[in-house]
């Protein structure tokens, strides 16, 4: 513990942050212990060496190369921005083109429904009925799965294991040539 304290005092002495009392304590210690004095001498040498260390000047070309790299980077970013903007516009145009018939049909249905209150009510009823049907089916599926897992817990693991097998089978199926395609190996 005493060593630790004296090491700390040495460090504080290097930072010129030592009180007069602590300085006297450190001096006493250094007088009494040659090893500690040698250690402190090495610390002082390191400290002096670092304080006198030369400051490396940047090469003359550095500023120019930084500005050139910056200009290059900004140009690349601008180009990327332009390209991505164009790609987004093309993608939106394609999506609109594909969705156009659906949107037209939906608009026609909506306008016809708005035209007569009874037709609008019937449409809302139909949509609500379909949603209720969907919710019921989902509920039944979840309940069925829960009871199956409760009856035999290993079935869950079996079903999970079937997923990669099914994916593999589907991939194999996709990879096989259809009967209409010519055999490339022939």
């Amino acid at each position: 513990m005493a060593n630790e304290r004296h090491r700390r005092l040495m460090q504080e002495a290097l930072d010129q942050d030592l009180s007069p009392e602590n300085q006297q304590e450190l001096m006493r210690r250094l007088d009494q212990e040659p090893d500690a004095a040698a250690q402190y001498s090495r610390l002082r040498r390191v400290d002096d060496m670092l304080r006198s260390a030369p400051f490396e000047q940047a090469p003359a070309r550095l500023a120019l190369s930084i500005m050139a790299r910056l200009a290059e980077e900004l140009k690349a970013r601008e180009q990327l921005l332009r390209t991505s903007g164009l790609a987004l516009a093309v993608a939106l145009a394609l999506v609109t083109l594909v969705m156009l018939p659906l949107l037209a049909a939906a608009a026609w249905l909506f306008l016809s429904a708005v035209g007569s209150a009874s037709a609008l009510a019937a449409l809302i009823q139909q949509v609500a009925g379909m949603l209720a049907l969907l919710a019921g089916a989902l509920d039944a599926f979840v309940q069925g799965a829960q009871s199956l897992i409760a009856d035999s817990p290993q079935s869950a693991a079996l079903l999970l294991a079937l997923i990669p097998a099914a994916i593999y089978w589907l991939m194999r199926r996709r990879g096989e040539p259809t009967s209409d395609e010519p055999d490339s190996g022939a």
Binding site: A13, L14, M27, D31, Y40, S41, L43, D47
Partner: peptide, 29 residues
Amino acid sequence: LFRARQALADRIDPQRAAASSINPLLETT
């Protein structure tokens, strides 16, 4: 910083350091 200085001091050639070993605090007083 404490540990770095300690490590650097330990890496200076101990023999040379001992040969020129002085007590800087005593020297300045």
